[in-house]
Simulated assay, not measured.
Amino acid sequence: MRAPLSLFLFLLSAMLQAGSTPLTFSSGEQQVSLIELYTSEGCSRCPPADRFLQSLGKQEGLFSTFIPLSFHVDYWDYIGWADPYASPAFSDRQRRYAQIHDSNRVYTPGFFINGNEWRGFFQRDRNWRGSLSRKKVGVLSVTYQHPTSQATFEGKLPDSARLNTAWIGLGLESSIQRGENRGKTLQHDFVVLQWKNQPMPSSTVTLTLPSPPDNGQQRTGLVAWISQSSDPRPVQAAGSLLPSKTTIH
């Protein structure tokens, strides 16, 4: 008999807490690009963008040259469906991007690559790889063993550096009962379930992370990136999926 997913996630969390083999991952010296999608389950135009982000999980270079992230915003919740993955902090992050690009407008679906608006999704060719950065910025390495994580950056830290860490979920599914997507079943990958932002005053920093959240996802990943306190655009990023017997959709 196949064990239920909730039991598997419980056992995985228990193994991490019990001091199992640490999860270690790093970027190369060249910049790993963050591809950020700002989306909402309450937005009728968002499911195609969600599917596009899902498709990136099958592309060459995942986690080594690019990392997809799906930030669910809360500013559409008022139209009838409260997105379970939405956070005011994610909406604020998108608004901060709008500010640094001299714009007073946020919208969904909205894509940013390395903090720069990417409108290629709305074009026929969708040449997203042409927007990836491969400049040499330094190596970001992360070691996680519950509840402690250590991040090290071999390169020049930006002024007022910040370390961002995010738990992400893949293989999530929602049955929408109200709002613009009423009656639809939506699938999501690379959803940011939890995001933490803290100062990084030196090239090595140790932090305490909570256990991976259990939102019913089939896969769980950890992503880290460096930015500045005054500028959310990522300088370098690294990420990995936690061990699992399941696969990316």
Rank of each mutant, 00 (worst) to 15 (best):
Leu132Cys: 07
Trp128Gln: 07
Ala89Gly: 05
Ile113Gln: 03
Gly115Phe: 08
Trp81Arg: 12
Tyr85Val: 04
Val139Cys: 09
Phe122Ile: 00
Ile79Leu: 15
Asn114Pro: 03
Lys136Arg: 15
Asn114Arg: 03
Asn127Leu: 13
Lys136Gln: 11
Tyr97Lys: 06
Trp81Ala: 09
Gln99Phe: 02
Ser103Pro: 00
Arg126Ile: 03
Trp128Phe: 13
Thr108Gln: 05
Asn104Lys: 05
Arg134Ile: 07
Tyr107Pro: 00
Gln94Arg: 02
Tyr78Met: 11
Gly130Cys: 09
Phe121His: 07
Asp102Gly: 02
Trp128Arg: 03
Ile113Ala: 03
Phe112His: 08
Tyr107Phe: 15
Arg95Ser: 05
Phe112Asn: 04
Lys135Arg: 14
Phe112Asp: 06
Asp102Arg: 09
Ser103Leu: 07
Arg93Tyr: 04
Asp92Ala: 14
Arg96Cys: 03
Asp77Trp: 10
Pro84Ala: 13
Asn116Gly: 07
Asp92Trp: 07
Val139Leu: 10
Ser91Glu: 14
Trp81Leu: 10
Phe122Pro: 01
Tyr97Gln: 07
Arg105Trp: 00
Lys135Glu: 14
Gly110Met: 11
Tyr78Asp: 09
Gly115Lys: 07
Phe111Pro: 02
Leu140Lys: 09
Asn104Asp: 11
Pro88Asn: 15
Phe121Ser: 01
Trp118Cys: 01
Phe121Val: 02
Phe112Cys: 01
Phe112Trp: 12
Ile79Trp: 07
Ile79Thr: 05
Ala86Gln: 08
Arg134His: 15
Leu132Trp: 12
Lys135Pro: 01
Ser133Asn: 11
His101Arg: 08
Pro109Lys: 10
Glu117Trp: 05
Asp77Phe: 06
Ala89Ile: 01
Val139Lys: 13
Gln123Glu: 15
Arg96Ser: 06
Arg124Ser: 11
Phe111Met: 09
Asn127Val: 06
Gly120Ile: 05
Glu117His: 02
Pro84Leu: 11
Val106Gly: 02
Arg95Trp: 08
Tyr97Ala: 04
Pro84Glu: 12
Lys135Asn: 12
Asp83Arg: 08
Gln123Met: 12
Ile113Arg: 01
Asp92Asn: 15
Ala89Arg: 12
Asp83Gln: 06
Asp83Ala: 05
Phe112Ile: 01
Leu140Met: 11
Arg96Asp: 05
Asp83Glu: 12
Phe111Gly: 02
Ala89Leu: 11
Tyr78Gly: 01
Phe90Val: 00
Gly138Pro: 10
Val106Pro: 03
Ser87Asn: 15
Asp92Phe: 06
Tyr107Cys: 03
Gly120Gln: 10
Thr108Cys: 04
Asp77Lys: 04
Lys136Pro: 04
Tyr85Ser: 06
Pro84Asp: 11
Gly115Thr: 06
Trp118Val: 02
Gln94Tyr: 05
Gln94Thr: 00
Ala82His: 14
Gly110Asn: 12
Phe121Pro: 03
Gln123Tyr: 05
Arg96His: 09
Asp92Val: 02
Arg119Tyr: 03
Asp77Gly: 02
Arg96Lys: 10
Gln99Val: 01
Arg93Ala: 04
Asp92Lys: 12
Arg124His: 14
His101Glu: 15
Gly110Gln: 14
Ala98Arg: 00
Trp128Leu: 04
Ile113Phe: 01
Ile100Thr: 01
Arg105Leu: 09
Arg119Lys: 09
Gly80Gln: 12
Arg96Ile: 00
Tyr107Gln: 06
Tyr78His: 13
Ala89Lys: 10
Trp118Leu: 07
